[in-house]
Nucleic acid binder design. Structure first.
Lengths: 347, 347
DNA sequence: TTGAAAGCGGTACCAG
DNA sequence: CTGGTACCGCTTTCAA
């Protein structure tokens, strides 16, 4: 059976409803827009009945053409593959939907993609724009055109140079500081760090948090305790780096990984070296991904407020659309240390 | 600085371009639609220049109103939280974008949500609809109205009763069959299964695959080797069930988990019981999630073809939109056994 | 080759 | 309180 040959189902419009109900177009429009106060109960009922009977679906594009509202927010996403970011996207959808908005999405890996995404999303008349990015510094000149748009724009996790835009970020530095502090409180004095890429603000910030906590406690920062451990190098190298750390003297008693996946590999390497986590070496991750509680041992990690950030971003653009918020805002959300088993503390 | 007070930037339209370039509206429309053949090179250049200068952005809603095309595909997503499904969504976006389509998304957890999602997405005039679902049997009557829509509709992973719609599914049964077969080939004779919810087709199918492989090899199916292990019960119960399995006599030498997260917990429980994976007990997961290669030991699992399914679904609706595909199709994608370390085989 | 005009499906203003 | 009508911004015949 093929369902694709045009069934010639003439699409029914507001005019059809008006005709069938024996009223004017404006009257129908009024009920569509909840202005039925000044209308006979009877009339309303009849119109409603006709709409239902004819399976009427108002064309939101036609409406949008005149109201200049689409009830749609555009989301430009970098590296959407990251499970965490996708979760954030999902949550943003929930918040948006509560306000009867939908999300129109477009991924953008390169600057060129991004330009293109901005072009098409604005051409589709979205009411606002959210950028879900990696914290990389990039050439941002093309963002200037956004200013001419007179459209709410919010950047999530973006190290942009344009400070007059709205931003939602999280405090990586404080996050790792907290993690390091936690280890120090537990008595650790030799803490290593598999750091993220320094090309990203997050990598640099986290390293900074690590140093800061160390310094605060008068612990020396050792170059050889810090090694790259991120997607720019292979998992084998994470493992290799871990082994090298274990060979150091004094051997680090704790390792802070750049993210939860790396932490999993670190734990694995430690265990394969016949050492125990956390008894011989404690491990802390970063992100708090879905699987982290289920690792063996359950991973102590720093939770990124991706959900809160998504919610915040959506609320910011909705606020701007509604004209409630007008000032440009820079929100920095805190990270939370989630204590589980991998560093030995029990809460 | 507030950027929200109307800058009175009159939005420029095709009319403005025509005026500024000293040509007619139709001429501008022609260049917008790549019909510049019958046009002076000069005219074209001038129009292009003016468009660039005025930063002209054609209003795709206005266009869509007449062309009845929006270059947008609606995606209705159930349980978008699942990292795997979100990956699929992300991949769908890639495929769609290659064809210059965008995705308008709406989550729907309940039937009521779903009705609402269908309503608003169609009202926004999407060119096609993709349902990314859980494989649950539900009351599907509301889907009937989709038939009247004359719009391409594809269901991914949905156990719908409406066979005349397009479907993309994967073969859970064969997937678990394969996993079980693999274990049997490795010499296992006592294979347990932490099964998924039987309320979902996937749970039932996987159990079926398990039984099928057992029977094919003349191994008896033991009720006590099968326990529920899914989101309907708590992680503590997964752990508890694992321990119960380990207490059985003869003790299972292998456990097939309902998904990778459960598999992680199973491995953890086994290890905490001072047994080794895979030497004492082999473990196989289901999904092949992002973290699975990084578990200790790396998880052998059945990969769900979520990416391929997403791609397939998008291509199906694009094909229908283009009028190339007309027949309704039912695609069933194979699952792939990914052999890593957790069941002892080395490829 | 280019221009004029009639919609697409709504909204909203203005009479009556 | 209801009906007529001028747009919204673009496409698309149909003439010139």
């Amino acid at each position: 059976m093929t369902r694709s040959q045009r069934p010639a189902t003439k699409r029914i419009t507001i005019k059809d409803i008006a005709q069938a109900a024996g009223v004017s177009i404006s009257t129908v429009s009024n009920v569509l827009n909840d202005r039925s106060d000044a209308m006979t109960e009877q009339t309303l009922e009849r119109i409603l009945a006709v709409m239902d009977e004819l399976d009427y679906r108002p064309n939101l594009m036609a409406r949008g053409l005149v109201t200049r509202r689409t009830a749609t927010i555009g989301v430009v996403i970098a590296e959407i593959e990251t499970p965490l970011f996708l979760q954030s996207l999902s949550f943003m959808e929930s918040i948006a939907r509560e306000a009867s908005y939908n999300l129109l999405i477009s991924k953008a890996h390169t600057i060129e993609d991004e330009k293109q995404a901005i072009k098409v999303l604005t051409a589709k008349q979205v009411d606002g724009l959210i950028f879900l990015s990696v914290s990389q510094y990039t050439d941002d000149d093309h963002l200037n055109e956004l200013r001419r748009l007179d459209m709410p724009v919010v950047f999530v996790n973006r190290a942009t140079l344009h400070d007059d835009f709205d931003h939602v970020n999280w405090d990586d530095t404080a996050g790792v500081d907290q993690a390091t502090e936690h280890l120090i409180q537990l008595g650790h004095r030799h803490i290593a760090h598999l750091r993220g890429p320094l090309s990203r603000q997050s990598g640099a910030n986290r390293l900074e948090g690590y140093r800061r906590a160390l310094e605060r406690h008068g612990l020396t920062y050792r170059e050889d305790y810090v090694k790259p451990g991120d997607y720019t190098v292979s998992p084998e190298q994470w493992q290799q780096s871990t082994l090298e750390l274990l060979d150091l003297s004094p051997r680090p008693t704790a390792i802070i990984a750049s993210d939860d996946i790396v932490a999993a590999v670190v734990m694995k390497a430690i265990q394969q070296a016949q050492l125990r986590v956390p008894y011989d070496v404690a491990v802390i991750g970063f992100d708090d991904q879905h699987f982290s509680p289920f690792l063996h041992p359950a991973l102590t990690t720093v939770r990124l407020p991706v959900l809160a950030a998504g919610k915040c971003a959506v609320e910011m653009v909705l606020g701007k659309i509604a004209g409630e918020r007008t000032e440009s805002e820079h929100v920095k959300l805190p990270c939370t240390l989630i204590i589980r088993e991998s560093c030995g503390a029990t809460t």
